[in-house]
Computed example of a mutant assay.
Amino acid sequence: MTDPIDRSGLAPRFWERKKLADLSPAEWEALCDGCGKCCLNKLEDEDTGHVELTRVACRLFDDTTCRCAQYDIRHQFVPECIVLKPSNIDSHAYWMPRTCAYRLLWEGKPLYDWHPLISGTPETVHEAGVSMRHRTVAEFEVGEDDWEDHIIEEPL
């Protein structure tokens, strides 16, 4: 499967030498590992702020490619979709998956060996069992009251 993210021409291990705020747009996009977990509906405890991921995916999520089927125009269909960027990561990183490169770097942690920037191939995220490839249900198939039945475990 072809990786829609162009990681060519980027400096080796740029994420280890630059702050998130200093990344170029191409470097920022290259951090996406293609797991698809950011496109999952989440449940947040109002009292504690604890976030659980569900396997209930956004209506635009393609669980074969683990990508948004309408990425460039997604806000026309899902206005509440958050565009994660250096200027808003402080307020949004907490709800990103624990394995997400953006969250890991924001927390001062290294990327996992299966990340495409380390492995050199976008398939390793799937081979490692981290992605949501073929593991989701569409949000129109599950009522919001039943999302709790679809919580997935995240690594600690």
Rank of each mutant, 00 (worst) to 15 (best):
D3I: 06
I5G: 04
I5Q: 03
L10S: 09
L10I: 06
A11Y: 00
A11S: 14
A11Q: 11
W15H: 05
R17I: 00
K18C: 05
K18D: 10
K19L: 15
L20P: 09
L20V: 09
A21K: 07
D22G: 08
L23N: 07
L23K: 04
L23W: 09
P25F: 03
W28Y: 12
E29V: 02
E29K: 12
E29G: 00
A30Y: 09
A30G: 05
A30R: 08
L31V: 03
C32K: 00
C32Q: 00
C32Y: 02
D33C: 13
C35D: 09
G36L: 01
K37Q: 13
C38V: 05
C38P: 14
C39G: 14
C39T: 10
C39W: 12
L40S: 06
L40Y: 08
N41W: 13
E44C: 10
D45V: 15
E46A: 14
E46P: 07
E46H: 02
D47Y: 04
T48R: 08
H50N: 04
V51I: 15
V51N: 03
E52H: 13
E52G: 00
T54D: 03
A57W: 01
C58Q: 12
C58H: 12
R59C: 11
D62E: 11
D63A: 05
T64K: 12
T65F: 06
T65E: 09
T65W: 03
C66A: 14
C66G: 03
R67C: 13
Q70Y: 12
Q70G: 10
Y71P: 07
D72N: 13
D72Y: 06
D72Q: 14
D72G: 14
I73G: 02
H75L: 10
V78G: 13
P79Q: 08
P79Y: 02
P79A: 07
E80R: 11
E80I: 08
V83E: 15
L84I: 15
L84A: 15
P86H: 09
P86Y: 02
S87N: 09
N88F: 11
I89H: 11
I89A: 08
D90K: 07
S91N: 11
H92E: 15
H92T: 14
A93V: 05
Y94C: 02
W95Q: 14
P97H: 05
A101T: 06
Y102R: 04
Y102H: 15
Y102M: 12
Y102E: 01
R103E: 06
W106C: 02
W106Q: 11
W106S: 10
K109H: 12
P110N: 10
P110V: 09
L111P: 08
D113I: 03
H115S: 13
P116T: 14
I118H: 05
I118T: 08
T124V: 08
V125M: 13
E127M: 10
E127S: 10
R133H: 13
R133M: 11
H134R: 13
R135Y: 04
R135V: 04
T136L: 05
V137K: 08
E139T: 07
E139W: 01
E139Q: 14
G143H: 14
G143E: 14
E144G: 01
E144P: 06
D145L: 06
W147C: 00
D149W: 01
H150P: 01
H150S: 05
H150D: 05
I151D: 03
I151Y: 06
E153W: 00
E154H: 01
